[in-house]
């Protein structure tokens, strides 16, 4: 299905947030994730299913002022 990950259109097979991280080869551990502007707590990544057209943001800590 087609979703948008960090602003980019992608065709994915993953059906959950957890599976999406694995499919895209994310290796880090410090992420926060929002689907359609709703934050998905880490404890719900495996259970949170994805749908076609979802907008997913995968966020990490960065330098800031």
């Amino acid at each position: 299905m087609r979703v948008r990950v960090n602003g980019e259109e992608r065709e994915i097979a993953a059906a959950s947030v957890q599976a999406l991280l694995a499919e895209l080869d994310y290796e880090g551990t410090h992420f926060a994730i929002a689907v359609n502007y709703d934050v998905v707590p880490k404890s719900e990544w495996a259970a949170r299913s994805l749908s076609s057209g979802d907008e997913i943001e995968i966020i990490t800590p960065r330098q800031g002022g």
Partner: peptide
């Protein structure tokens, strides 16, 4: 200290290093 949040590129783990 102030920090920000930014998108992590696919395959990335740069956030872990900074953190």
């Amino acid at each position: 200290v102030t920090v920000s949040l930014r998108r992590e590129a696919a395959g990335g783990k740069s956030g872990d290093a900074f953190w």
